[in-house]
Nucleic acid binder design. Sequence first.
DNA 1: CTGAAAGCGCTTACAG
DNA 2: CTGAAAGCGCTTACAG
Lengths: 357, 357
Amino acid sequence: MRLLARMILGAMDQPTKHSQRMTSRHVAELSGVSQTTVSRVLSGHPNVSPRTRGRVLQVLEETGYAPNLAARAMRTGATDAIGVVMGSVTNPFYPMLAEALHREISKAQRTMTLWISDGEVTDSGEQGALHAVRERSVDGVIYTTATPDSASLSAAITVGAPLVLINRVIDDVRCDSIVTDGAAGARAAVVHLAELGHERLGMACGPRAVSTTHDREQGFLAGLAAAGLPVETALHYRGDFTHECGRQAFDRLWDAPGGPVTAIFCVNDVIAFGVLDRARERGVDVPGEISVVGYDDTEQAQWSAYRLTTIRQPVAAMAALGVGCLLERVADRTLAPRRELLPAVLVPRASTGPVPS
Amino acid sequence: MRLLARMILGAMDQPTKHSQRMTSRHVAELSGVSQTTVSRVLSGHPNVSPRTRGRVLQVLEETGYAPNLAARAMRTGATDAIGVVMGSVTNPFYPMLAEALHREISKAQRTMTLWISDGEVTDSGEQGALHAVRERSVDGVIYTTATPDSASLSAAITVGAPLVLINRVIDDVRCDSIVTDGAAGARAAVVHLAELGHERLGMACGPRAVSTTHDREQGFLAGLAAAGLPVETALHYRGDFTHECGRQAFDRLWDAPGGPVTAIFCVNDVIAFGVLDRARERGVDVPGEISVVGYDDTEQAQWSAYRLTTIRQPVAAMAALGVGCLLERVADRTLAPRRELLPAVLVPRASTGPVPS
DNA sequence: CTGAAAGCGCTTACAG
DNA sequence: CTGAAAGCGCTTACAG
């Protein structure tokens, strides 16, 4: 037995013999117990005598054995991998979110599989996730940039995989969703501007179908109503979520037919940076001549180039809730869909000030 | 048989019966062939009659069958997952790289498992990757932020897993590495500045142990020598890779004992943004009073807040080579380590100009 | 061209 | 407390 042990260990030392690595059976032989017992020790099963456990643990330590996850997955049906779908990583909000999600996923001893949508094929990330769900290579998927018209997403729902929508909601879709209160956030931005005396407000939005844009637009309108200000939909510039969109929004709203706006609320920080940069290019003073509010509170927002007043999303809490929901759902697929609405807070900085007189 | 087929299909329709999904055996029964034949059709094995193949393909289509990846992985030993380790996603260079890697990994029909190092535990991403390599849940790992002192990385090498270092090199480490020529890039920056008449140049670096910093410092020194300029190591500000580091570098180099520098070369764009922002805060004109060069050519570099002259890395090529190397190595572990050096090019913008007279 | 069978490395009843 | 055995769903010699 000892000799066998040595032979096995010897083979293990060969780095070239990489293809045949330590298995629980090897560990069993080395510890003089059955493979079943090794499995029990590994899983912390109570029915193992302290003596046996000790012996096995020592061999485990010596050999640096780690269970083959594919084999375990085949038995248990769980891969311990969680998928995350992201539509963009150019917008720094998403790396922030990815980092927070990764932290939670690691904390839960899981692995993060990431799909990033291709610029051309917006749906590509979700298609990858759908495929993985079909092949059972992830236990569930967190979508951070879901849109209602995604065929892949609805296919994934049909398959019955555990799914969580984070950052965006879709009506009539049977899965958990974790979002921040975009309407309240936008409303707070408008109230802030109204308090500074602004009466002619513009907004820079993304596509209407995206829930974040929709919610923030509703909040913007609600804020105007609450402040007794008129609604001028002509002052809603609609583009995508880019810096260039912000630049164009500035031009449109500064040169608006009824005269320039005195403040612009942007549906995200990147757009706001575009607005601010365009203002700088045209020599328009911020906040002397125009105030700007963003959304997300990305790291750049506090840089002195921008000092952007913005709405902060509780990214860490979103990630924790999202991963938590998903794992609960993996454990019990019959759970009713959950909807969580987290608060967003206004972070005032130097890009907003009193209305010019 | 037809009845059985219906029963099986019927069960498949139940979304609640999610736990027991279609297997190749079901497909076999539905097509009236052996499970072996289904497997052959799936893998494109030539020895299948056109008639049989057609029948199986149709059932495959109807049922939407997808093979269980864990089962395949257990048989073949390959999971088709590729790990990527990143030390930071706050620096926008890394999201760019992640996106490029994702594109290549998807193109190769693989899945991307991502580890992001925790801010506190810099090594955490690499530990996750090491664990995954031990558990065989990835076929190989691409490290984008490797440092020589990482215990996890050397452990992964010992395990014998296919590994590729991208963006950073480590001497004496037996694995492929794909980097851009940081020395040449930095040298080009210095030459550019020298041509503009600058003679007193400062540099803002990261930690010395990081290869990117090291290479770019060497290139900086070589550039000075080539231009016949004196080397003043006092003008090397050393910090981390952050915006704040750039702000401090500016103060240090502008208020340098021997008088202000007229140009600063930064080891990455984020530091350069910090330098530019600090210059703006202190009312120092760029490029009128000081020129600034970055490194990476991130998206923000072209924004009008910065218009940063910088060195562009061929991110797409790095990703393609990195993934290519890794897959070759997965297929043949005996391959000799490869080192690829890609060119980096200077992108002149408005942050550099003639030396102030 | 086709199929029965072995086996990848685990977990988990089942029997003692 | 312990072990022999079945089986997760594939791929791949092996035999016809």
